[in-house]
């Protein structure tokens, strides 16, 4: 009887494959939840959304026609199926106020928002990582207590100012008083400076603080002591052993900030009259243009999920344990 091989060895699944499967299935579940929430949103609105969109003065025939064209008279599950079906063909419905296809509006406005968010993210990371790491090294083990106090209090205050307030302040100082940059609108490079800064400064302050704390924690670890016991030069200890681990932990915690930055575009765009999705979502909520709201919410939601996915993948590449740890 040679069943030993059949019984003894269970095929060993590559941890990367397992990670990919697990992470993708989580993405699928999240996307499904997002789709259902966006679909149900319209049905959870008290009263008749079409009536409230068109106003009390609109003739009943118009309301009925609009309801019919939106398919609101069908049974709920049928509407859900239609909704999903349309989504796969890229059909997000028609704006009630302008009559334009929602997908066209999104295609028109998405690039401005993505540019803003990506630029702000890069600026935030490029400020936060060097500043946070340098502060960590300089203030390790209670050195330079005054520098530490200054850094911590500055970053706390900067992080406490919401992006739209910061935007107003920046507009006042740099656009109204100094007139270095335009007050609003999207045009040349100069028009990007203030919106990007208002979006980046808060997260950068938080990220720099996290980064410093993480570095300090890494400096306390046993493996850093091991690195020192190898009598490596200080720069090698910091760059080779402390930095990668501090950055890994920073990304874990900073990932949430990134998602927040995507949402932050909504406020910043409204201050600067930025022609992106953020302005669209607010104006469409105010106009009760529900199909448009639904479409933009979906885009924002998917954006956040993709950002989270990117963070997880980056983590898995940087720290091989994280692929294992979850299981």
């Amino acid at each position: 009887m040679t069943t030993a091989t059949a019984v003894g060895s269970r095929p060993e699944i590559n941890p990367w494959v397992r990670f990919a499967v697990r992470r993708l299935s989580r993405l699928v579940v999240s996307v499904l939840a997002l789709l259902s929430a966006a679909f149900l949103m319209i049905h959870l609105i008290p009263g008749d959304p079409v009536r409230s969109a068109l106003g009390p003065a609109a003739p009943k025939s118009l309301v009925d026609a609009q309801r019919e064209s939106l398919g609101l008279n069908d049974p709920l599950w049928e509407q859900y199926l239609h909704f999903l079906q349309h989504l796969f063909t890229g059909n997000l419905g028609t704006s009630i106020t302008t009559g334009l296809p929602v997908s066209d509006v999104i295609r028109d406005r998405l690039p401005a928002t993505v540019q803003l968010a990506v630029a702000a993210f890069l600026v935030a990371v490029l400020i936060a990582l060097p500043v946070g790491l340098a502060m960590g090294v300089l203030t390790r083990a209670g050195r330079r207590p005054r520098a530490e106090l200054g850094f911590t209090s500055t970053s706390v205050v900067l992080a406490a100012i919401p992006e739209f307030l910061l935007a107003v302040g920046l507009v006042y100082v740099f656009a109204v008083k100094l007139q270095w940059f335009p007050v609003a609108g999207r045009g040349n490079v100069a028009s990007y400076v203030l919106p990007v800064l208002s979006l980046a400064i808060g997260p950068a302050a938080v990220l720099a603080r996290i980064c410093r704390v993480e570095l300090l924690a890494v400096l306390q670890t046993d493996y850093l002591r091991t690195a020192r016991a190898k009598r490596l030069p200080a720069t090698a200890v910091y760059l080779r052993h402390a930095l990668p681990n501090a950055v890994t932990a920073t990304i874990t915690l900073g990932g949430l900030l990134l998602g927040g930055m995507v949402a932050g575009t909504v406020l910043v765009e409204n201050v600067f009259g930025w022609p992106g999705l953020g302005s669209t979502i607010v104006s469409s909520i105010l106009a009760k243009d529900y199909p448009l709201v639904q479409g933009v919410v979906l885009v924002y939601g998917v954006g956040v999920l993709l950002v989270n996915l990117a963070v997880d993948v980056a983590l898995a590449l940087l720290d091989p344990r994280s692929t294992i740890r979850e299981s």
């Binding site: 579940v29 999240s30 939840a33 929430a37 949103m41 959870l44 609105i45 008290p46 949430l256 998602g259 927040g260 995507v262 949402a263 932050g264 909504v266 406020l267 979502i281 909520i285 105010l286 529900y290 709201v293 919410v297 924002y300 939601g301 956040v304 999920l305 989270n308």
Partner: peptide, 21 residues
């Protein structure tokens, strides 16, 4: 766990649509 992944402002906008301005 799914809801936590979305930033608060986005959730607030979503609920603002439902509960009205």
């Amino acid at each position: 766990n799914i809801a936590v992944a979305f930033p608060g402002l986005l959730l607030a906008l979503f609920f603002a649509v439902i509960f009205g301005v």
